[in-house]
Design a protein around this nucleic acid. Structure first.
Length: 878
RNA sequence: GGGAGGUUAGCUCAGUGGAAGAGCACCUGCCUUACACGCAGGGGGUCGUGGGUUCAAAUCCCUCACCUCCCA
């Protein structure tokens, strides 16, 4: 074996073999319990970024763990057609070619979009493979494929017939950048340093001029009223008056409505029903006319007046302001910071606009989703999201599901020449309903998230009652970023419960955001994005996975630090070398399925006990989605216990210097189980090494992927041995520390004295003599009181002494000892104070009191020895 | 304006009532034939502020400060 591990030399090989052998193909039906995760489908033409790499790791970890634990585990992969994102990419390509989608026409454009999709669709799989994802690719899905499109049409028709989807004219968030309506969620509120314009409107038939304040003066061209608060006495006299719109000359009435804030500006506001949501609703209440002065591209319409028509809305603003100024209507301009809705995708300010769109009434479904979390049927992890969940669902508004795009599921609604609408799963059905063939399909497509909302069941064949659906629905857990909790998670829960009566999963593990090493959000503009595949190339997939998993603490973002990753790459190397060492020393020993611990010596019993404890804890932690803690325990066990202690202790036995029974078998058996424990996090390395363990083929399947996940052997647990070994370790650490502090060169030998009042413990330590010698470079260990002149102390209740080559205590040594004395004296004071405190003695549990009594005894003993040592070595005393 | 989270060693973070932890970084010694992506040892923290509950608080409660994010 190579001295250093080289992930690149085996990762591809194993991914290929796993896939060829079909290890990840799930059964339906199955006699085994099912476990299912649906991948959050990445954009079909996209790349896997850091966030999805984290989620991929967690999903794979869970799937592999469950698969090894005997479940019929399915991790279903797939991609999303990503309506707007993909359409934009294709359009950009067209522009580069000097054409555009309009000139290509719908059919031609879709052809190009499919071409683009087909070209890129394999990309995601390549990336998932490189991360070691154990997806069942025989079940791969795409949101725009025929099967899922059928589910989309079916869901749409059903909701329409239930009255939950309808078409109507309403105020929507219009993106002039994309020239489509978008949903509330696709609008970002951004702070803008704007202006507040105070404009005078003359009152007809009087000299009075009233004043309104607005941040959008260009919309005054579409004003159809002035509003005041009904109880605002200042303007009561204007109730029946009429104002004259400057520049336009139109008469506008005054209306009273309690949405008007008396404190804002002058307490009078202009009303533009066609371009503001509040004004729109106000207009409906008061039967006001709507005048659309801004068009789909954000330009002024002819309705805005001759001199404005065709101007961009922001140019129009300047011109309106300038003209108001010239004509003496502009009274004041103030700086005004406020939040303005922007199109998330194109970045341009949203234009509220009245438009005919399809809406989904989600209020009832939201109630079900609220109930699901409240009742515990659905767990959000971490549960700090519960409040956010509730708040959003309680205030939910109808979902605008139509988009003026071409790439997506075309709305299954057809219109007759007279404008009558027929919603049906197919054109034929619609024609039948309409009683005519002269029908035209609605040109709009559905919001991408509409098909995503059906993902957990549409991928399993819904609306058909397929074997897959029966076997895997509802799924178990969803792993995704919190940023799409409403876009996606809530909507899946709503539609899932509506259509299937069940929550589509029982738990949602919401991961934090992956940030760069400095904690900065990754973004293209910052240029600090990290390509997970570059990391895989540099550190190996297992190290990337381990890093992501161990950093995934609930509710916390993940800073991706290359140093950290290098550290876990070293862990891989450590594992490699532990196996390399073992294979070279175990002779003909083989991996055992079980071991009888009663015949084993203390180090063997100890490591098996620790292994069992670790296995039990790791299973527990996984079950609670605490991958960070599980990984920490694995790391600590393998490196801190197996490598640092057990392998070191096994060396004399394996070198034949001091034979102990079954050391090779124990070592191999521990490695077998350790590798299996680590496999869900580090699949490649563990498979590569596990395949080399002699004897594993006799008791296990051909791949570690399907080998049983260790749960911890009760019979191997041995707390007494653990406790005693711990005393031994403490003594070794003490002696090592002393050697280092005294500067005893490694080549110089020393003699250790150990004397314990407990005869069992003394006997136990006595049996470890052979192992202590090389660990500490000792000549001998004597089980008796240390002679005068030895460096003595008390460690874990055991009197110990070390005799080292003649050497005078230096000034530094004395200082160190004196500092130690100060520390002990302080501890003495504190512990004594505690034990003299009557309240403590009366109220603290017996266990804690005892603990402190023992502590005090040991402190006193150590102080005595230390004082003696200092006195004996007093300069000039000898 | 409402809500969530954070404030613990130089950095990034674990740690929900009984003597402050990890990884990395740093310092000192070691190439001890598994591993220098290593071994051994070490330094370093009034656990944001102020109060309260308790025999005992990083941990529970309240105040304030600062940081991040979400919603309006």
């Amino acid at each position: 074996m190579e001295k250093r591990f080289d992930p690149a030399s085996y990762e591809d090989k194993w991914q290929k073999r796993w896939s060829e052998e079909g290890f990840f193909v799930a059964e339906a039906p199955s006699s085994r319990p099912s476990f299912c995760i649906m991948i959050p489908p990445p954009n079909v033409t996209g790349n896997l970024h850091a966030g999805p790499a984290l989620q991929t790791t967690i999903q794979d970890l869970l799937t592999r763990w469950k698969r090894m634990s005997g479940y019929n585990a399915l991790w279903l992969p797939g991609t999303d057609h990503a309506g707007i994102a993909t359409q934009l990419m294709v359009e950009r390509q067209l522009i580069e070619e000097g054409t555009d989608r309009q000139s290509l026409g719908r059919e031609g454009f879709l052809e190009r979009a499919w071409e683009w999709t087909d070209q890129h669709s394999g990309n995601i799989r390549v990336q998932l493979d490189q991360l070691g994802a154990s997806c069942d690719w025989t079940r791969e899905r795409f949101t725009l494929e025929e099967g899922l499109s059928k589910a989309v049409r079916s869901a749409f028709v059903r909701l329409y017939r239930e009255g939950l989807i309808s078409r109507g004219e309403y105020m929507v968030n219009w993106s002039p950048g994309l020239e489509t309506a978008i949903s509330d969620l696709e609008v970002d509120m951004r702070p803008v340093e704007g202006k507040l314009y105070h404009i005078a409107y003359p009152v007809e038939g009087s000299d009075e001029r009233i004043v309104v304040a607005t941040t959008r003066p260009e919309t005054m061209l579409g004003d159809t009223a002035i509003a005041m608060h009904p109880e605002d006495d200042r303007y009561a006299h204007l109730r029946d008056a009429v104002a004259i719109l400057p520049l336009v000359g139109r008469q506008v009435a005054f209306v009273a409505d309690d949405v008007v804030e008396r404190e804002f500006g002058t307490g009078l506001v202009k009303v533009t029903p066609a371009h503001d949501l509040t004004d729109f609703e106000l207009g409906r209440r008061h039967g006001l006319e709507s005048i659309q002065v801004i068009d789909r591209k954000g330009r002024m319409t002819p309705e805005a007046g001759e001199q404005f028509a065709g101007l961009d809305r922001f140019e129009a603003r300047e011109k309106v302001v300038q003209m108001l100024q010239e004509q003496g209507y502009l009274l004041k301009v103030e700086d005004y910071a406020h939040n303005v809705g922007h199109c998330q995708r194109s970045g341009v300010p949203i234009e509220p606009m009245i438009s005919t769109q399809w809406f989904m009434d989600v209020e009832g479904m939201a109630g079900q989703a609220l109930q699901a979390v409240a009742s515990g049927d659905l767990r959000l992890i971490p549960d700090s999201w519960n409040k956010t969940w509730d708040h959003w669902l309680e205030n939910i508004r109808p979902w605008c599901i139509s988009r003026q795009l071409w790439w997506g599921h075309q709305i299954p609604a057809w219109y007759t020449n007279s404008g009558e609408v027929f919603v049906a799963a197919s054109r034929e059905e619609a024609a039948e309903l309409a009683g005519t063939d002269e029908i035209t399909q609605d040109p709009d497509v559905l919001d991408t998230w509409f098909s995503s909302a059906l993902w957990p069941f549409s991928t399993l064949g819904w609306p058909e009652e397929t074997e897959d659906f029966k076997t895997f629905y509802p799924t178990d857990v969803l792993v995704t970023g919190f940023d799409i909790i409403f876009f996606w998670v809530a909507r899946m829960v709503m539609t899932g419960m509506h259509f299937t009566g069940k929550t589509p999963f029982h738990a949602v593990h919401l991961t934090g955001l992956v940030r760069d090493a400095d904690g900065q959000k990754m973004s293209k503009t910052r240029g600090n994005t990290v390509d997970p595949l570059e990391l895989v190339e540099e550190y190996g997939a297992d190290a990337v996975r381990f890093t992501l998993a161990i950093l995934d603490s609930p509710g916390r973002d993940i800073p991706l630090d290359p140093d950290r990753m290098a550290g876990y790459r070293s862990f891989g190397n450590k594992i490699w070398n532990a196996v390399r060492f073992s294979l070279s020393r175990v002779g003909s020993a083989t991996v055992q399925e079980s071991l009888d611990v009663t015949e084993l010596a203390a180090p063997e019993r100890w490591i098996l006990s620790r292994l069992s404890k670790t296995a039990a804890e790791v299973n527990e932690r996984f079950a609670e989605y605490r991958f960070d803690e599980a990984c920490q325990r694995l790391y600590h066990f393998f490196w801190g216990e197996l490598c640092d202690w057990y392998i070191e202790l096994s060396k004399p036995a394996l070198a034949g210097e001091s034979p102990r029974p079954q050391v090779g078998e124990v070592l191999l058996t521990v490695l077998d189980r350790s590798l299996r424990l680590l496999h869900p996090v580090m699949p490649f390395l563990t498979e590569e090494l596990w395949q080399r363990l002699p004897g594993r083929e006799a008791i296990h399947p051909a791949t570690i992927c399907l080998a049983p996940y260790p749960v911890g052997e009760e019979a191997w647990r041995d707390p007494v041995t653990e406790e005693r070994m711990d005393v031994f370790f403490q003594i070794v650490a003490w002696a090592r520390n002393l050697r280092a502090e005294l500067g005893i060169p490694p080549r110089d030998k020393a003699t250790l004295y150990i004397s314990s009042e407990s005869s069992e413990l003394a006997a136990f330590l006595g049996r470890l003599e052979a192992m202590a010698l090389p660990l500490l470079r000792l000549d001998a260990v004597h089980f008796e009181a240390a002679p005068d002149g030895a460096h003595s102390d008390v460690v874990a209740g055991v009197a110990v002494g070390l005799v080292v080559p003649e050497r005078e205590l230096s000034l530094e040594d004395r200082e160190r000892l004196m500092a130690e004395r100060e520390k002990l004296r302080a501890q003495h004071q504190r512990t004594l104070g505690l034990l003299e405190n009557k309240a403590f003695l009366a109220k603290a549990p017996e266990k804690v009191v005892d603990q402190n009594r023992r502590r005090l005894e040991e402190i006193l003993e150590r102080l005595e020895i230390l004082e003696a040592g200092l006195a004996a070595d007093e300069p000039g005393s000898s």
